[in-house]
Design a protein around this nucleic acid. Structure first.
Lengths: 123, 123
DNA sequence: CTTCATGGTATCGTTTAGGATACTATACCA
DNA sequence: TGGTATAGTATCCTAAACGATACCATGAAG
């Protein structure tokens, strides 16, 4: 890691990227507390291995809390830590830009279609 | 792509992630306009292939503008589009959280060191 | 004694991102 | 005629991310 400003962007992005982390975080934001099996149910295509791995990484970064109940069959509950909740506004900002972006691209495509059809509207 | 909110987070993140995109964006934010060779010089470890590929992706998403001058040897200048500049506040938010995060982790580690040294302070 | 549910690991294969290196076109300059 | 600079491509290779599948430990219920 270097000391340039972009480095901190990368630091933050490391935590948010990965094929499943945004979805996992969204689940925990909207449901507060979820068991492992509930997360797995709500993320239909994730494998157990990936879910475990991503949760462990989030736990390492103090974003999610893992609560183990010593019962059989096991019961493990996941939730955002207070610190993890500081990510919510950041995720909202990213999501808002993402929404604008799909609109922006759609508009660009409409313009391209219009100009390309005007060059080929002899058909 | 699905319709869930997290999807737009992923949409946005696709544009920001990749080993070099944050650095490239930072360069263009701080220098306004840069030639291909200048970008390459400022990003010492990037390969020509990666620089080209990342710039093309950013161009496709209308984040950077590519201006080609028909001279020999070639001169190509890259800059943020007006639309690309809407990313700046998002990057700032991400960067700010990243800064907090390194502090947070450092603090956590200090606490851990303190407790672990208190269990082993017979040395 | 078998079965079931839960929350995992372990192992292997595939797919993707990224890197190293060589090559190219062009016109000017010596 | 040959070298130089710029902005790339093309090809091949490695490493990391991701996925499929099989396996495991536990104790209660039947």
């Amino acid at each position: 890691m270097e000391e340039t400003p972009s480095c901190r962007v990368e630091t933050a992005l490391e935590i948010l990227t990965g094929k499943w982390k945004p979805s996992i975080l969204l689940e925990l934001i909207t449901h507060d507390t979820l068991r492992f099996s509930e997360l797995k149910r709500n993320l239909p295509n994730i494998t157990q291995k990936m879910l475990t791995a991503q949760l462990r990484e989030l736990e390492l970064n103090d974003i999610v809390h893992r609560e183990i109940y010593q019962v059989v069959p096991p019961r493990v509950e996941y939730s955002l830590t207070d610190y993890g909740k500081t990510l919510i506004p950041v995720l909202n900002a990213i999501n808002a830009w993402g929404e604008k972006h799909v609109e922006h691209l759609a508009q660009k495509d409409r313009l391209q279609d219009a100009t390309s059809s005007s060059t080929s509207d002899s058909f």
